[in-house]
């Protein structure tokens, strides 16, 4: 058990004779704490990452459901206006102007196409989700029916299995 004043375990292993690794880590920790605290994105970032982290998924069936849930959130392609930026200094200004003009000129054409595509994406995602739900439901019912039939045809074998199942841990 660590004492309340014990320094946190080192996160970085930097084996350099001329570098004070403790001081470096302390400085980085302070900066990171300030960033995470200041940024409203701190918790939002963690939430998104948790939502997408595969470590929470154990098998193929869970993965299909997990994937479908993500697809339901992601199928909508963003076709709204967005800030057009350039890092090229003075040259960047005319480039930015040109890109903004092109975007405005083409919008009447692309918006219609993309919004129709979005509608199709939404319908496809909904159809896939319905298919998956249906097959999940069907598998559940079939599994229940198999267990029921096994109970009818091999009652003794199932009885014998019971103590083993009870000791089977998780």
């Amino acid at each position: 058990m660590s004492t309340p004043d014990a320094p946190p375990a080192r996160v970085f292993d930097v084996q350099l004779p001329d570098v004070n690794a403790d001081a470096l880590e302390q400085r980085l920790r302070e900066r990171a704490a300030a960033r995470a605290g200041l940024s409203a994105g701190g918790t939002e970032l963690d939430e998104i990452v948790r939502k997408f982290d595969l470590k929470s998924v154990r098998n193929e069936e869970e993965f299909l459901r997990f994937f479908m849930d993500r697809l339901q959130e992601l199928h909508q392609v963003d076709i709204n206006d967005f800030p057009i930026q350039s890092h090229r200094g003075l040259v960047g200004r005319p480039i930015r102007l040109l890109k903004s003009t092109l975007w405005k000129l083409l919008k009447f054409y692309t918006y219609r196409l993309f919004s129709q595509q979005n509608q199709i994406n939404a319908q496809l995602a909904a159809a896939l989700d319905a298919l998956l739900r249906k097959s999940e439901d069907r598998i559940r019912k079939l599994e229940a029916r198999i267990a029921e039939l096994e109970g009818e045809t091999h009652p003794a074998a199932n009885k014998a299995k019971q103590p083993e199942q009870a000791n089977g841990g998780d």
Binding site: V11, F12, D13, V14, L24, L28, R31, A32, A33, G42
Partner: peptide, 18 residues
Amino acid sequence: VLVKEKDNPWLIAEMIRE
């Protein structure tokens, strides 16, 4: 630079920046 624990992305990001 060996990272022993990676729960905090801000800290690793700060190391990259450094």
